[in-house]
């Protein structure tokens, strides 16, 4: 039995076009746990694999937060489904829940910025961020539509 693809041919074409901007390698670390949210985790993993097939710079690793507990803790991920987007280092970009709809655009953007390590921010913002005295945790809540 074959699985229906999530991305349409036109989605794939649009993402391939965006991926022309990819610099270095990117790893998408997927956090899945069948017993907690099987359907959502399977869809999330399928989406990530379909995206990864659109660039040879993208690799995928799947972790189970229970079995791979220490690594999941190091990523600061307790909930599933989740994705960490890593470039030259782990920049601390996480997606919780399936990045569909509007969030899909952000996932693609996250992959590109992680691949280049070059954020599109003003010099003023970069300087302020470099001088942060302590950790900053930004949570952005969204819905797919």
């Amino acid at each position: 039995m074959s699985v229906m693809p999530i991305l349409t041919a036109s989605d794939q074409a649009a993402v391939r076009k965006e991926f022309e901007k990819i610099g270095g390698p990117v790893k998408l670390v997927v956090f899945s746990q069948e017993l907690v949210a099987g359907d959502l985790c399977r869809q999330n993993e399928q989406l990530v694999r379909e995206v990864s097939e659109l660039s040879d710079k993208i690799s995928v690793e799947v972790l189970n937060p229970v079995i791979d507990r220490e690594r999941a803790e190091a990523y600061g991920v307790e909930e599933v489904p989740a994705i960490a987007v890593e470039g030259a280092r782990d920049y601390g970009i996480r997606f919780f829940g399936i990045p569909a709809g509007y969030e899909f655009t952000n996932l693609i953007d996250a992959i590109i910025v992680a691949s280049t390590g070059e954020p599109a921010l003003t010099a003023e913002t970069r300087t302020a961020l470099e001088e942060l005295p302590e950790p900053v945790h930004i949570q952005v809540f969204s819905t797919p539509t």
Binding site: G97, E103, N106, E118, L121, T125, E130, L132, P135, H137
Partner: peptide, 13 residues
């Protein structure tokens, strides 16, 4: 911002 600074973590929920 997360890419710009090792102090920043960005979660999309």
């Amino acid at each position: 911002m997360a890419v710009a600074s090792p102090h920043v973590r960005a979660d999309c929920v």
